[in-house]
């Protein structure tokens, strides 16, 4: 799982997002980083107009009119980008992108990056069944090192099987920048399907990463509302790490709680062994959320 700050020319990444806030964060970071590096950036939006994406970029401080006039930024409807001949044709698409890369370099840009919203593929477009083939084949173009792409798939609309297949056609997935990366521990902000912030925890929490883990939770406490922590990606947490979680929950003011999502059943048992399940402010969500 790549953090969006680490995206480089040569990458072909898949963003499987659950909420617009996550989509926006990753997209804006990707586009602005490309602009800052002197690369040409093309954004294919699933909307009929470029307004939403332009608004995002303006909010992020991009002078959209200027970079558009300079030919460095293009925001186009995805139908125009992907469905040149009215149907989806992988060969034509690969040829067109190769032309975009060459054109960008010829115009003096240091590279080309593209991000596309892929929701059109679910709307009965002719040739859309060849999307997986395209995603697999296009990797070679990006691997040449002069271009990069993030393909955006909304996990709320793509059926899980199709989503698995499509993410599998990308060398790697991308997510928001980690709030914290400390050795084997990574804590990444994300959003649930209702747009509420979630901390996604992956890796290991032990005595080496205990201080960083505590800091990550305290920073989440600083925000408003409930603190949501998704432990589904966790490989290991020791008893002291669980204690940090419990103490964070206990210290929350009345009316707020810390919700632990996708905690392994064995760890839920450990929390009960110590009596931590009776902590006020701690809610263990036993529901098995979709990844």
């Amino acid at each position: 799982m790549r953090q969006v700050k680490d995206v480089r020319l040569g990458d072909h990444l898949c963003l499987a997002f659950t909420h617009e806030a996550e989509q926006r964060e990753v997209s804006v970071t990707f586009v602005t980083a490309g602009l800052a590096r002197g690369e040409r950036v093309l954004y294919l939006t699933d909307d009929p107009t470029p307004d939403r994406v332009r608004h995002w970029l303006e909010e992020a401080g991009v002078d959209v009119a200027a970079v558009t006039a300079a030919g460095q930024l293009g925001v186009r409807p995805a139908r125009e980008g992907y469905l040149v001949s009215g149907r989806f044709d992988p060969d034509a698409m690969i040829t067109a992108l190769r032309g975009e890369v060459a054109g960008s370099l010829a115009a003096g840009f240091s590279g080309f990056r593209i991000s596309g919203e892929m929701g059109w593929a679910l709307r009965g477009v002719a040739g859309a069944e060849r999307l997986e083939e395209y995603e697999r084949r296009i990797t070679a173009l990006f691997h040449e090192g002069m271009s990069a792409a993030i393909c955006q798939y909304d996990t709320r609309v793509f059926p899980p099987d199709r989503l698995d297949a499509l993410t599998g056609c990308h060398p790697e997935q991308v997510q928001m920048n980690a709030l914290l990366q400390d050795g084997p521990l990574r804590v990444t902000p994300a959003f649930d399907s209702e747009g509420r912030p979630v901390l996604r925890v992956s890796g290991a929490i032990d005595r080496d990463t205990a201080a960083a883990w505590d800091a990550a939770l305290q920073s989440a406490v600083g925000e408003d509302g409930d603190v949501r922590v998704d432990m589904g990606g966790l490989e290991f947490i020791d008893v002291a790490g669980l204690r940090v979680l419990v103490r964070t929950a206990a210290a929350l003011p009345d009316g707020r709680c810390l919700r632990v999502l996708r905690l392994a059943p064995a760890l839920d048992k450990v929390i009960r062994m110590v009596g931590w399940d009776r902590t006020s402010g701690l809610v263990i969500d036993s529901e098995v959320a979709s990844a």
């Binding site: 020791d238 008893v239 002291a240 204690r243 419990v246 206990a250 110590v274 009596g275 931590w276 009776r278 902590t279």
Partner: peptide, 8 residues
């Protein structure tokens, strides 16, 4: 449960 240590 509220102690700083001793749960391990």
């Amino acid at each position: 449960p509220l102690a700083d240590r001793g749960h391990g």
